[in-house]
Design a protein around this nucleic acid. Structure first.
Lengths: 142, 142
DNA sequence: AGAAATGTAATCATTGACATTACATCTTGA
DNA sequence: TCAAGATGTAATGTCAATGATTACATTTCT
């Protein structure tokens, strides 16, 4: 299964805020036009980013901006905010291995540390990239 | 989104083959009893593992065994076999960013290298663990 | 031939993603 | 103060994937 497009949309949102923030008010309609998804989807994602403390959204008047310098917002921050995993676990374990079977009884504990390490490797790599890196790459291409 | 339980089931299958292979014929019904899922699901996963060249399945007579020494079968092999990703990409990119927007036009190329590195970090960690490691851990607990 | 398996198609329930409509609520400016 | 422009969010709908289940054709060995 793939990681939801909410993640790349979240990055896209920050890139727009940084690149257009001085000239435009960054509304959900504005973002929806650049990202090309429904504005309600954007508002849902903005809500998740806001709950994670990554952005500030102005009610009534409208518009949104980053709550911290974009050098300090990593891919992992965005991932955590928008792609909430059940109990934070990347791997979906089969639910009811047979406890009467020597393998079924022990498979979970035998696997857990390894699965955590794999998940950790991905998350650590995610922490290496910030919104600022993406914005820099986009500006290089303008 | 989580990685499908087919992955942990696939590992479980190998563990059963190794631990019970001398005493039992490893049929889909036998595996289904230990894993506690429907035998047809098991047969589907066995079919994927077979197509990947990881196991051999006996038609008619029944039973399955690893096609290679389990020291040489990594988590990544199993993952690739059972959790086929669309074009092999872990991240689902939003499909149609606006090409008339400077950000929309460039977001994909600005992100791709970083997303590949993140996916690569996960896959590399997966390559570090083999079925033999799991079997060893299970035997330790018996 | 018959028993025991695998291979696979068909159907179903459930879940999550994303789209869309609708409307309540908030804020500010005229 | 009220109308315009936004956000917040509930309700519905479509689509795809997972996993359960039934059914049956096919294969192999005895």
């Amino acid at each position: 299964m793939q990681i939801s497009s909410r993640f790349t949309i979240g990055i896209h949102v920050f890139a727009c805020m940084e690149i257009f923030g001085n000239d435009h008010k960054i509304t959900s309609d504005f973002l929806a036009a650049s990202i090309n998804v429904n504005p309600v989807i954007i508002r849902k994602i903005l809500s998740q980013l806001k709950n994670a403390g990554l952005i500030e959204v102005a009610r009534g008047t409208g518009g949104t901006k980053a709550a911290r310098p974009i050098e300090e917002i990593t891919f992992y921050d965005v991932y955590l905010a928008v792609d909430l995993l059940e109990e934070g676990e990347l791997f979906h374990f089969h639910e009811n291995p047979n406890p009467a079977c020597p393998v079924g009884k022990n498979i979970h504990t035998a696997l857990d540390d390894k699965l955590l390490r794999i998940q950790g490797a991905m998350e650590n790599e995610m922490k290496k990239y910030t919104i600022a890196d993406v914005v820099k790459d986009i500006k290089k291409r303008l």
